[in-house]
């Protein structure tokens, strides 16, 4: 779910990178905090909980709450502890349709 961003960016970073989120290309600042950059791009829902399927997004942004979990290269990681790199392919954990990985 990508909506108009509820966040204002104080300055536009000159170097940009293409990051794929849930199959959609996003233009993000190279080297930025990945969770912050996704929020700024209008991504609100980073994952759905395994218990009830409820939507979740970043909560603490300091590596403690694990609510910003995303999947990259088959590994579930905290988006707030990662930086934007060009070509990064990010999906919601265990929701990639074409991952081909056994469930």
């Amino acid at each position: 779910m990508k909506t108009a961003s509820p966040f204002l960016e104080l300055e536009a970073a000159p170097a940009r990178a293409t990051v794929w989120f849930d199959g959609e290309p996003l233009d993000l600042p190279q080297g930025a905090n990945l969770a912050a950059a996704l929020l700024a791009a209008g991504v609100a829902v980073f994952r759905h909980t395994p218990a009830s399927g409820a939507p979740r997004g970043p909560f603490c942004l300091m590596g403690a709450c694990f609510d910003c979990l995303v999947e990259i290269d088959g590994v579930v990681r905290q988006a707030c502890m990662l930086e934007v790199e060009d070509g990064l392919r990010v999906t919601r954990p265990h929701e990639a349709e074409d991952s081909g990985a056994p469930v």
């Binding site: 966040f7 960016e9 930025a32 912050a36």
Partner: peptide, 9 residues
């Protein structure tokens, strides 16, 4: 953290 590190408001 959003404001400090990423300049987001």
């Amino acid at each position: 953290i959003l404001l400090k590190q990423s300049g987001l408001l």
